[in-house]
């Protein structure tokens, strides 16, 4: 019967010969090769070419006019007198606002739903499916749906709000053409759309928590809230970090909801940074400037993700 390396090590037999045969092994590299090819084509190449574009005044329609401008595209973003300054930082600020609105909602609501649907609720599978269902829709579908719900003339929200007199004399706000009402409309649409995904991840993690812990806690006389804060939350922490991280990234990628629902208005008040980059690159045909914006945004995103990770890691060690 063949012995494992560990067993051979323990008995001291023929380990040296095994080690010499393991000098270099191509097999693992062959396994990652298929992914590596796509990675190189769709990530590696665009990354490098984007970096090159960002140092040019670049327009792919008039290649004869492309000129090297060094770091000009980057300094423009930090020069208050440039054309790009206001537009870029306004849109980045908007994306930040959207993150502040949407990330807490997209973590807390799915968490509560997951805890609720992890109990022995009758028909819980149906509820899980219902809550997850919107996630399969495309952004244009959900945006159009919520556009009609929020629109001022006969929109569902306003009809009910008026009938119930919720907003008093002035009537409901213009959900799609004034701030901050527009952010509420966009956030509600986004939360409804994507909360099912976060819920499923959290639900899977919840199901991994051993039942014995709760049993032990019950014997010790812990109530439901104590069990949630002392058992559920600590054991969910690493999954929560992951959920928060991907939710931040998804929120950073806001694009379609504001384009469809508010047309980025009023007065670019809901224009996200991803739209700004798109507009710069494909409507203005300034791909160099757009690439520079992309790298600045990427750096900010990496920083935010890193900080998020660090903060939660620190708390993790306290247990």
């Amino acid at each position: 019967m063949a012995k494992t390396i560990q067993e051979r090590e323990q008995t001291g037999e023929a380990v040296a010969s095994v080690n010499t045969r393991r000098r270099f092994n191509f097999t693992p590299y062959l396994f990652i090769l298929p992914h590596l090819i796509f990675f190189a084509i769709f990530v590696g190449y665009p990354f490098v070419s984007g970096l090159v574009y960002s140092t040019f005044q670049y327009n792919f329609l008039t290649p004869e006019n492309n000129t090297f401008v060094g770091l000009n595209n980057y300094t423009n973003l930090f020069n208050t007198k440039s054309r790009e300054f206001d537009l870029f930082w306004n849109s980045l600020g908007n994306t930040g606002i959207f993150m502040l609105y949407s990330v807490p909602a997209l973590v807390i609501i799915p968490l509560l739903l997951a805890v609720l649907l992890n109990t022995k609720l009758p028909g819980r599978n149906i509820f899980r499916a219902i809550i997850f269902a919107p996630w399969v829709l495309s952004v244009s579908v959900i945006s159009l749906l919520w556009f009609w719900i929020f629109q001022s003339n006969g929109g569902l929200v306003n009809v009910y709000a008026k009938a119930l007199g919720i907003f008093g004399e002035d009537g409901p706000p213009r959900w799609l053409s004034t701030l901050p009402a527009a952010w509420i409309a966009i956030t509600v649409a986004t939360v409804w759309w994507t909360m099912g995904f976060n819920m499923i991840i959290l639900l899977a993690a919840l199901q991994d928590i051993p039942e014995q812990l709760y049993e032990a806690a019950t014997i010790d006389g812990a109530n439901t809230l104590q069990k949630f804060f002392r058992i559920t939350l600590p054991l969910l922490q690493s999954v929560l970090v992951f959920v928060i991280t991907i939710t931040i990234i998804a929120s950073f990628n806001l694009f379609g909801q504001s384009l469809f629902m508010t047309n980025n208005g009023p007065s670019r008040g809901t224009e996200p940074v991803m739209y700004r980059i798109y507009d710069e690159g494909f409507n203005r045909n300034a791909q160099g400037s757009a690439a520079a914006m992309s790298f600045v945004v990427a750096l900010i995103m990496i920083l935010v993700s890193y900080l998020n990770f660090r903060i939660f890691r620190k708390r993790d060690t306290s247990y």
Binding site: P46, F47, S49, G50, Y53, V139, T194, A250, N253, L254, F255, G256, Q257, M274, Y275, I277, Y278, G281, F282, A290, A291, M293, S294, F295, V297, A298
Partner: peptide
């Protein structure tokens, strides 16, 4: 971002 920013 380089390729025009996917919605999500």
């Amino acid at each position: 971002d380089n390729t025009a920013a996917p919605t999500t």
